[in-house]
């Protein structure tokens, strides 16, 4: 068991899956010679060669399409898009093709490919480098969307994503690449489906995913000092969504708060709260709450950026106000 950075865990999963299956290839901008903008493929070009770790030109829609086409012919490509903002260019091949080919072929053709990309705000990268598009992919039938919260989950889920037969949108976060956690040395897999109760509690349910899950955990620690027992759920998979785990938790705590780094409208929080209303409306003792970004393009100035996106304090204060203790 060794501590590993998030980027190292991702790199290790690549390495093992490339070694395990000759049909696995990696494609993307700077994934080869450079080893990835976030080091996710560091050294793999040197180890596996240019036919398996492929540097692409800046052509997101078409290199995603090439990955999809290759997957239709039996390869298992892991395609990296350098920033989720650039994934907007690839929505045609990801949403019109990858998500729909299995269905519109009546199950006769499948696209077992993974599109990995970091989403989220980092440090003053401004509006065109701070997108968080999880909600966009989450609303698309035919895709799996996963958001690993930590090195351990990132490693185990990427390995599962490569082996699964569906197109998987694998959303990382720029501010999580240097997060560290103990990861067992022995190979393991983490399933792509299922929300996880990462902290047990009885007074309120805090729900998050990738970075916003970390905000929930931090808020839960502070709430504990105030005598509040918060349960924290990591969604892990935004699509398909684990409704059962959400329902069970809310039936126990009777209060739910969803934290997301994205703007609120038509978002992850909207979906989760609707799910709660559909599943267990009468279990609620308080109005559900969303903690989310301001409805603005992400600004550059440090103070404005900070004001635009939620932090653990926002989650903490939101939870207290729901409990009537703010």
């Amino acid at each position: 068991m060794a501590e590993m950075y998030y980027w190292e865990a991702i790199r290790r999963a690549h390495d093992e899956e490339l070694a395990n299956d000759i049909n696995v290839i990696v494609m993307g901008e700077d994934v080869g010679v450079v080893g990835g903008t976030y080091k996710a493929t560091l050294g793999l070009y040197q180890k596996y060669g240019e036919n398996r770790v492929i540097d692409t030109p800046i052509s997101e829609n078409s290199f995603c399409g090439i990955g999809i086409g290759a997957s239709m012919a039996g390869l298992r490509p892991i395609v990296e898009i350098m920033s989720i903002n650039f994934a907007l260019l690839a929505l045609d091949t990801l949403i019109n093709a990858a998500a729909k080919i299995r269905y519109m072929s009546g199950g006769r053709v499948s696209c077992p490919m993974v599109m990995r990309t970091p989403g989220g705000t980092a440090h003053q990268l401004a509006a065109q480098h701070s997108a968080r598009l999880a909600r966009l992919f989450m609303s698309t039938s035919g895709l799996r969307v996963v958001t690993p919260r930590s090195p351990l989950d990132a490693y185990g889920m990427l390995k599962s994503a490569v082996r699964c037969n569906d197109p998987v949108i694998f959303i990382e976060h720029e501010r999580m690449y240097n997060m560290r956690e103990e990861v067992p040395d022995k190979e393991f897999f983490r399933p792509l489906e299922g929300a996880e109760v990462v902290r047990r509690g009885t007074d309120i349910t805090l729900i998050g995913y990738n970075l916003s899950l970390q905000l929930c955990l931090e808020a839960a620690k502070r709430l504990e000092k105030d005598g509040v027992s918060a349960e924290v759920i990591d969604l892990r998979s935004l699509k398909p969504l684990d409704r059962e785990t959400i329902r069970r938790s809310v039936e126990k705590t009777h209060r739910v708060l969803v934290a997301e780094e994205d703007e609120a409208s038509v978002g992850v929080g909207s979906e989760i709260i609707t799910t709660v209303i559909e599943e267990c409306f009468f279990a609620l003792d308080a109005q559900p709450m969303r903690i989310h970004a301001a409805d603005v393009p992400v600004p550059y100035a440090e103070n404005l950026e900070k004001a635009a996106i939620p932090d653990a304090d926002d989650v903490y204060r939101g939870a207290l106000s729901m409990l009537g203790r703010a």
Binding site: I66, T93, N96
Partner: peptide, 24 residues
């Protein structure tokens, strides 16, 4: 491997199929 409504979409899909042929 399909007919597609988006007229430019088969270009990269075809290149991907070809990449798999070359790779294998």
């Amino acid at each position: 491997m399909g007919g597609y409504a988006l007229v430019g979409e088969p270009f990269p899909l075809a290149a991907g199929l070809a990449l798999a042929c070359k790779y294998k």
